[in-house]
């Protein structure tokens, strides 16, 4: 499951699936603050298991998908996810990814970080940030709650074990 093309296809599949689930949750009336950011979780997953230049491209692609789905500007989410990916992948060697607690913590931090970066890139950051802070915190928490559940699914999808991930990091796709 380490072939670049297969990774690309799976990224499209998971990205589309994640956006579909988010859209569905919003459609059935779940408040935005409680809708987890599945795409971001996937980016976090990539930053652990595909920590390479190719992983950066995949993270960019995920963000680009989100930008396209939003129908607004093309680029802010892509930039935001690239930064998030870079931040985690640089320290991924020092994080025990199998731990649910570390996943929750990283998810909370990265959700807030991605939102802030998005606001910085796209629009007037301060007014939005202060008016939407409660919603941001809600999304961060719901994303964090979903992380320990979503990761095993992704591991299964990518057929990664802990050993695979280590090998993947040492090999890389740069």
């Amino acid at each position: 499951m380490t072939h670049p093309l297969r990774l690309l296809l799976v990224t499209f599949f998971v990205g589309g699936l994640s956006l579909g689930i988010e859209g569905l949750l919003l459609q059935i009336g779940v408040p935005l603050a409680l809708v987890p950011e599945f795409v971001l979780l996937f980016v976090i997953f990539l930053s652990f298991y595909v920590a390479s230049s190719y992983g950066v491209f995949l993270a960019f692609l995920c963000g680009f998908l989100v930008d396209m789905s939003s129908g607004g500007l093309l680029g802010p989410w892509a930039g935001s996810y690239v930064i998030c990916f870079g931040a985690v992948s640089l320290i991924s060697d020092r994080i025990y990814v199998e731990s649910g607690f570390s996943l929750v913590f990283i998810s909370v931090v990265l959700t807030l970080l991605s939102q802030i970066i998005y606001l910085l890139i796209s629009i007037d950051p301060f007014s939005q940030l202060f008016s939407e802070w409660l919603s941001l915190c809600g999304r961060a928490m719901s994303t964090a709650v979903m992380a320990p559940l979503f990761f095993p699914f992704l591991r299964k999808l990518f057929s990664y074990s802990r050993g695979d991930s280590i090998r993947g990091r040492s090999g890389g796709y740069s």
């Binding site: 993270a59 960019f60 963000g63 870079g86």
Partner: peptide
């Protein structure tokens, strides 16, 4: 390499 890629892709997104 990762940092370089991140910078490049971030610039691309901008």
């Amino acid at each position: 390499r990762i940092v370089t890629s991140v910078v490049l892709f971030f610039l691309l997104s901008l």
